[in-house]
Amino acid sequence: MSSTGLAPDTDVGTPGRRTRHWTTAMKWKGAAFTVPFFLGFVLLFIIPLGYAMWQSLFREQAAGGLGLTGTVTEFVGFDNFARVFADGKFWLGMSRVLIFAFILVPVMLAISLAMALLLDAARRRAVRFFRLGFLVPYMVPGIVAALMWIYIYSPRSGPLTPVLDDIGIDADFFASEMLWVSIGNLIVWNTIGFNMLIIYAALLSVPRELFDAARVDGASEWRIAWSIKIPHVRGPLALVGMLSIIGLVQIFNEPLLFRQVSPETVTKDFTPILFIYNQAFAANNYHYAAALSVVLALVIGAVSFVYYKIANRGGNA
């Protein structure tokens, strides 16, 4: 493109050959710019993935006979995977996070959408103030958010339990039946700001004339939001939903921190990643942990695929 336009000007002798030569050189130079990234990409993505798959085919076993000399690593084929598929604890954790994501993602999307729509309907001066407020949670690092909410939930230091107690609700945020609600709330709190921003940005790109036209036709604000604004932000909503699902299936930080306060409820196999983490670092089952990782990747891939299909069919835009 640009190269062919340039070459004839600078050229004197054999135009065709030199142009081709020049184009090839440019291609190589262009590719060279991407080399640092792709080198790192191979080192940090491809090799670890391949290595994990390779490791998942082995097992460490106590060396027979002497007993004291340690372990040998032997090739076991797909034995580790067979074990994964029969591992009730892993799949229980998996079903926990899948159900959790299934319930929480619509809630997250609905809240972020509501915030964005309200912001879009507000006067300009109010927008600035509220948008800043809505973004405060996004400025809080994930671990800090989790720690903070745990203190807020705590009956000893937090304001929530006594206040609920005063109005007659006996809440224990760390009880097993409340735990996912507690975790869900803190995740919603931590993420709605960013999600709201993405949706709000998309709302701003809706042509304003559409609203005027709808108003002239007698549409109410509700109707405008439902029939014009929401369809317009379908793409960003689907994207936010997808990223949220992928994030929630890998949930780790929050359960890990809740484990500090209620270890009997949040067991060490509570979520898939927590399970893998404990297999790898507490039980020293590297090979099994590698197999678990691969299976988890496949599950996430499958879930993303199904979600993508559904989101696309629904939107079809």
Binding site: I47, Q55, I246, V249, F252, I276, L296, S304
Partner: peptide, 17 residues
Amino acid sequence: ATFLVPGMLLAFPLYLL
């Protein structure tokens, strides 16, 4: 495609490496 590959998933193989 890498946006969709969970970061945590790579973390453990990366640790091994």
